[in-house]
Write a protein that binds this DNA or RNA. Structure first.
Length: 114
DNA sequence: GGTGTGACAACAA
DNA sequence: TTTGTTGCCACAC
């Protein structure tokens, strides 16, 4: 049961990302209790790839660029979703300085059990 | 239980 | 800034 819980934890964290903000894979991994397991986050998200209940588009690379090749359907999709969130996307990347999610502790404690 | 994989991250040139 | 290299580790075969 621990394994499935992890995916769900990741999804839970992603769902917490507010509209108009983004987070890096590493950041999500960290919040989900996997310090340094950014690649696991990508695995989990790709494994999800079904229902669109998840704001996966708010998860970017540490540099703020979209994790897909420019011009790919997924990249376009993600760009669209980000724009819909009010996040400016230029050349497959966003300004992390402006949009990076800065979760406050009480918020996290309230939403991530404990 | 070994091997390859991955929607990454950090660093070197 | 872009490209290549390395480290990372759970997961599927």
């Amino acid at each position: 049961m621990p394994q499935l819980d992890r995916k769900e934890k990741v999804w839970a964290v992603v769902k917490l990302i507010p509209e108009g903000h983004v987070a890096s894979y590493g950041q999500v991994a960290d919040l989900a209790g996997w310090p340094g397991r950014a690649r696991m986050v990508s695995k989990c998200l790709s494994a999800y790839s079904g229902p669109s209940l998840l704001p996966w588009h708010r998860v970017l690379r540490s540099s703020g660029e979209i994790a897909f090749p420019v011009g790919s359907e997924m990249a376009k999709e993600q760009t669209q979703l980000l724009l819909a969130d009010g996040v400016m996307v230029a050349n497959n990347r966003v300004k992390m300085k402006v949009y990076q999610w800065q979760p406050d502790l009480s918020f996290l404690l309230h939403h991530l059990e404990f």
